[in-house]
């Protein structure tokens, strides 16, 4: 399986730094910010963004983790995906919620995540930060913060690798895989 590196470790870090700055700038500070990472790789990315903001602004942004399994629109179409624990211990009522995911693709994951977030309260705003936008949207959804826009073909797979989950920071495009959709698939 040939793979092409589209973001190196340094570039991943730079993209995260830029996104962290943009979030603070767009929201005029960190007041009321909450990061909600979408399982699984959105969670470590959310943690890193929060750590960067701590570094730049000396402010703590609370983090939640969200599994969207129960909100999927394709549950009737196959075996139920294994659920992981959602942990949103801060109230989202009136907050500026930033959803964080690794890859934005069809937009269905984000649709599900927005529905889920609304069940935890009524946020003032919901924004979206992703490391990679690979196009091919099936719903009217766009990201507010994007690490890199990457034109892709449907049969390609974008894999985001992170130190926390994969031992290294890297984003690659893999040619037509075996239908695996764990990373970057986001049906």
């Amino acid at each position: 399986m040939p793979e092409k590196v589209i973001l190196s470790a340094d570039e991943v870090l730079r993209a995260m730094r830029r996104i962290a700055h943009e979030i603070v700038e767009r929201n005029r500070g960190t007041e009321g910010l909450v990061f909600v990472g979408i399982m699984s790789r959105g969670v470590p990315i959310a943690r890193r963004l929060a750590a960067l903001i701590k570094e730049f602004e000396d402010a703590d942004v609370p983090i939640g983790s969200l599994d969207i399994g129960l909100y999927r629109d394709d549950l009737s179409q196959g075996p139920s995906p294994q659920l992981r624990k959602t942990d949103i211990s801060v109230s989202l009522q009136g907050k500026r919620v930033v959803l964080v995911d690794d890859v934005l693709y069809t937009g269905r994951t984000i649709r599900a995540a927005m529905d889920a977030v609304m069940d935890f309260g009524r946020p003032k705003t919901v924004q979206l930060a992703v490391l990679v936008d690979r196009g091919h949207r099936e719903l009217p959804i766009r990201a507010d913060y994007v690490g890199k826009n990457v034109p892709t073909a449907h049969q390609e797979e974008v894999q985001v690798r992170l130190k926390e989950t994969d031992g290294q920071d890297q984003v690659v495009i893999v040619e037509a895989s075996t239908g695996k959709e764990e990373s970057g698939g986001n049906r």
């Binding site: 909100y71 294994q82 659920l83 309260g121």
Partner: peptide
């Protein structure tokens, strides 16, 4: 899975669309 779903029952809106 039951352990995960127990969390749903503690949410402000304890209902999911699955």
């Amino acid at each position: 899975t039951a352990g995960v779903l127990a969390e749903v029952l503690n949410r402000p809106i304890s209902k999911v669309p699955a």
